[in-house]
Simulated scan of single mutants.
Amino acid sequence: MSQQFKTAKKLALATDKATTMLFKHSEDLASTASIGVNTGKHHNKNMVVTIDLPDVTEAVNWSTPLTSFDREVLDTVNTLLEADNRIVTIDQIYRHMIGQPQSKRKAPKGMAESIERSMNGLLCRVVKIDATDEAKAYGLEEAVFTGSILSFESLTITAGGKRVTAYKIFNSLLFEKYSKAKKQVDSSLPVTVGNVPIRHTTGNIELVSYLKRRILAMRPTKTQHQKAISNRINVENMLDELGIAPRGEKTVSVRKARSKALQATIKILDYWKTIICTDGKPFISSYLVHGKRPVKSIEIRF
Rank of each mutant, 00 (worst) to 15 (best):
V185L: 05
T39H: 06
T132I: 08
V193W: 01
T165Q: 12
S154Q: 09
A135Y: 01
R105E: 02
H200T: 08
N78M: 05
H42E: 13
H200K: 08
I268S: 06
E113F: 03
M111G: 10
I275F: 04
S259C: 07
V252S: 13
L155D: 12
K177F: 15
N44I: 03
L173D: 01
S286V: 07
P54K: 01
K183R: 11
V77S: 01
V56W: 02
T251A: 01
L11P: 11
D91Q: 09
G147A: 01
D28S: 14
A217H: 14
L155F: 06
K128A: 12
K17M: 13
D279N: 04
T201N: 09
N171T: 04
N46Q: 10
V289Q: 07
D55Q: 09
T7I: 15
A181Q: 15
S172N: 12
V191M: 02
G203A: 15
I98H: 06
S2N: 13
L22R: 06
K222G: 10
T223F: 10
K250H: 12
K136S: 11
R255F: 00
V49Q: 04
Q263N: 12
L155Q: 13
T251S: 10
N85G: 03
V60P: 02
P101V: 09
K106W: 13
D84K: 15
T156K: 00
E153P: 00
A166K: 13
I275Q: 12
T79M: 06
K9L: 09
Y178L: 12
N204P: 04
S26Y: 04
E116G: 00
A33N: 15
M119V: 04
N171G: 00
E134L: 11
L13E: 04
L269D: 03
V185P: 03
G280E: 05
D16W: 10
Y271R: 01
G243P: 07
V60H: 08
T192I: 15
K41C: 06
H43P: 05
N44H: 08
G248D: 05
I233K: 03
I275T: 14
H25D: 15
K128W: 02
A107V: 05
R213L: 11
K273W: 11
D279M: 01
V193G: 01
K17L: 09
T201K: 10
S188A: 09
C277V: 04
I268N: 05
R213Q: 11
A245G: 14
P108M: 08
A228R: 13
S68K: 07
L140G: 12
I35Y: 15
I115Q: 10
S297C: 11
W62Y: 15
I51D: 09
H25A: 14
K180S: 07
E299N: 06
L123E: 00
S179F: 11
L262G: 03
T202S: 10
A137E: 15
A159K: 11
K222C: 08
A131P: 06
F283A: 00
C124H: 15
Y210W: 08
Q102G: 00
